[in-house]
């Protein structure tokens, strides 16, 4: 489902502020697998996730997501591919302030020409599943943090993507909500989705829903299994 071979990512290459964020990264994730990427802050977790999430192509090396090589895809096709296969849950949720829960969830559907009735139907089943139906017409800035995250999850799922990516999903959540989040990940896994999470949260890395933990330090990937032993 996901395959990286010697993928490199430079930010601002050739300029005074260049950053070599990802160095010779190789990683492969099978369909239906739940992988957790961990590492200290600034180590390149978000960069790796963006690469998988088709936000930008790698500077060099190979990145293949959902059966397609990203290396030289123009922006337009990256966007199209992202729309089809990726659901992204951001650390700060990134909901559109001032708009309702429903509006936020259906945002990805608008440019696809899906009629409002169908939009509502899709959103309704997701809201039902994530138990936020009661908050449907609330502005997103008037609901709690846990609800906000579930809105973000619903939005990530609305296109029914094969791959779900979550960047530091539990950073803003308390114990209880973190457990709920992991339960949702468990459900996604049961649905056969491939999930990649970044986190340096013990509760996540050690949770039994995580099949594999990938460690990243200073832009280099190492790997451990769920029990914490490095290969």
């Amino acid at each position: 489902m996901i395959r990286l071979e010697d993928a490199e990512k430079w930010y601002n290459r050739g300029e005074f502020n260049e950053v070599h964020a990802l160095k010779k990264a190789s990683l492969s994730v099978a369909p239906g697998e739940v992988v957790c990427v961990t590492g200290p802050s600034g180590s390149g977790k978000s960069t790796l996730l963006s690469l998988i999430g088709c936000v930008f192509p790698p500077t060099s090396g190979l990145v293949e997501v959902g059966g397609r090589k990203l290396s030289r895809l123009p922006d337009r096709f990256l966007t199209m591919h992202r729309q089809k296969v990726i659901g992204f849950i951001f650390q700060q949720f990134r909901l559109l302030p001032g708009q309702s829960v429903l509006d936020n969830i259906v945002l990805p559907l608008l440019p696809q020409g899906i009629p409002p009735a169908v939009q509502k139907q899709i959103a309704a089943s997701l809201m039902e599943r994530l138990s936020i139906t009661a908050r449907k017409d609330f502005p997103v800035d008037k609901i709690s943090g846990g609800e906000q995250q579930r809105v973000a999850i619903a939005r990530a799922l609305v296109n029914n993507p094969a791959i779900i990516l979550a960047d530091e999903p539990t950073a803003h959540l308390d114990e209880q909500l973190s457990r709920e989040f992991l339960a949702i990940v468990g459900e996604l896994k049961r649905d056969g989705k491939t999930v990649v999470i970044t986190s340096h949260d013990q509760r996540v890395t050690t949770d039994k829903v995580v099949d594999r933990v990938v460690e990243i330090v200073d832009g280099r990937i190492g790997s451990r299994d769920g029990n914490g032993y490095a290969h």
Binding site: V55, D75, R76, T79, M80, R82, Q83, K84, F88, R94, L96, L107, P108, L110, P111, Q112, R155, N159
Partner: peptide, 16 residues
């Protein structure tokens, strides 16, 4: 800018 970045992220094209 953040709103547009998000729209792009969830699959809106530049033309959209």
């Amino acid at each position: 800018a953040r709103e547009v970045a998000l729209m792009k992220m969830v699959g809106w094209q530049t033309s959209d």
